[in-house]
Amino acid sequence: MNRTVLVVGVAITLALFAILFVGLGRDPAAIRSPLVGKPAPPFALKAVGTGQTIDLASLRGKPAIINFWATWCVPCYQEHPVLVENARMLPGVQFVGVVFNDTEDKINAFLRERGSSYPTLLDEQGKTAIAYGVGGVPETYFLNRDGVIVAKFAGPMSTEILQSNLAKAMQ
């Protein structure tokens, strides 16, 4: 019995098995945001339609939902009504949409067609999106009243998802 072979071989087998086994439980595309638990990055962007500048500081005091989207994003179409509806139902929560790499005309047309119940900001070169670590659209950040990001959700949301994440911001 060759001890070296046995020990080395079994060690490699167990290590590989352990790593791959744990790997089976997770989704490799789900990237966790390092900003969760940290203060949200500041921004100051112009709202489409009104032209007013809205900055992060103005959101303090109430829980906030910042939703990054774009008119060229197909899943955003599904999500939009959910956001509009929830924004109406929950006046105690600030809803803000941020659109990047898009034009005001397209955004205005989209909102005219599908409704809007909260400000939509234009992030022309995506700098705010990058500061927030946005990879794709739609991605949504949930802030508590002190401006700390408590949750991030990537992908189109349903009402359940929105409300369960919002619950964390309300605490």
Binding site: M1, N2, G9, V10, T13, L16, L24
Partner: peptide, 18 residues
Amino acid sequence: ILVFLTATLLFSVVLLAL
């Protein structure tokens, strides 16, 4: 596949060692 991989790994290691 992971089960098969682990089983064949162990089999090969033991066979080699012996």
